[in-house]
Write a protein that binds this DNA or RNA. Structure first.
Lengths: 192, 192
DNA sequence: TTGTACCTAACAAACGTTAGGTTTGCTTCT
DNA sequence: AGAAGCAAACCTAACGTTTGTTAGGTACAA
């Protein structure tokens, strides 16, 4: 079945959780090591520095998001379908991997300049994918939007925000939330 | 005109800025003192601890938000007007005081249990105000929303998110952005 | 003279990081 | 098969620095 998780992967996983709990500067490597089942110093056998752990975490997540969203969009034809797919994906990805996505959305300020640029570049690529959908919707289906970039950001923020309050044991499923959010974006609050 | 700012207020202001820059655990009191024009230890003449600075910051901000939003809503009559007013206010408040609002939205995890509860209580009061508007819109104007709480959160997240990218020197004013966001919430993307 | 506002210097603890040693499992040679 | 070699994975103990916080003092205005 699934391979046994490598220690390196385990450290990254625990780091995501710990960084979300305490923030990057508030998390310490001894605690991270403990949760990963090794001693403090042994972290450095797998990573060169604390900073590298953060960078790998964020860089991996961004790559994964771009790849997975692109895959999903292949099956969608119209801009309308693509928009709904994107809303679904973005919410689902944030809710299922809340640690990774929280770090990636929120710890940019703690990246050293070089790492910062690389992660931001990937984030911009991801945004661009959604922006293109908005643009296509405008030209092909007459969507009512002046600034595609503006609404791209609105979509990203509101969908990412779901992860901060969503409760798997609550009375709404991810799909139901995604449906509701997609409806809001498409049709708005006012009656038609 | 405006009174000379008290040292205490200055420290809070600089703390908001510093905490946003580095995160609460990443910010240190000597740097905060330096920016406030005093020596490290002197912070403790004004505050009992680093934690108290964070709490005062967040608590003040939440109180201010509740008060100011309530004031603004007095002039609005219909749920429709109230919704637009809320969108305007929430965006404007986040864009004009990005340090305070960022901390308040983001540093909950670093509050000690007692402080946490008090700030969350105020945050919930703020949310409740918006939720009531959603509910009124549904019953009085037939808005299309199943879960008012759901859309309240969507509104809050997407409007707060503006502060992360808004540029006062860019080619859109706060008002223009607010207009666009309010339109999106009311009417959605699809043509009518 | 009394209290507010601040400074200086130090404390103990916690931090990221490093050096050097030990264990473990695999490969290679005889 | 068994010994020898080796690199990866990990441990232990320590380093220098930074951290929040405190104690005790000074300057000054009411």
């Amino acid at each position: 079945m699934s391979e046994p998780i490598s220690r390196r992967a385990l450290i990254l996983q625990e780091a995501a959780h710990l960084f979300r709990e305490k923030g990057y500067p508030g998390a310490n490597l001894r605690e991270l090591a403990r949760r990963s089942g090794i001693q403090g110093g042994s972290i450095y056998h797998h990573f060169a520095s604390k900073q590298e752990i953060l960078f790998q975490l964020m860089d991996n997540t961004m790559s994964d998001m771009i790849e997975r969203l692109s895959e999903r969009l292949i099956d969608s034809q119209t801009p309308y379908e693509k928009l709904r797919t994107t809303v679904y994906f973005h919410i689902e990805y944030h809710v299922t991997g809340p640690d990774q996505t929280y770090i990636t959305d929120d710890e940019l300020r703690n990246l050293e300049p070089e790492n910062y640029l690389r992660v931001v570049a990937k984030r911009d690529r991801y945004q661009k994918i959604i922006e293109e959908i908005m643009l296509a919707g405008k030209t092909e289906e007459g969507w009512r939007l002046a600034e595609p970039k503006l609404y791209t950001r609105a979509l990203i923020k509101m969908c990412a925000g779901v992860a901060t309050w969503f409760n798997p044991d609550g009375d709404m499923s991810i799909t139901q939330v995604a449906e509701a959010y997609a409806d809001l974006l498409c049709n708005g609050l006012l009656p038609r």
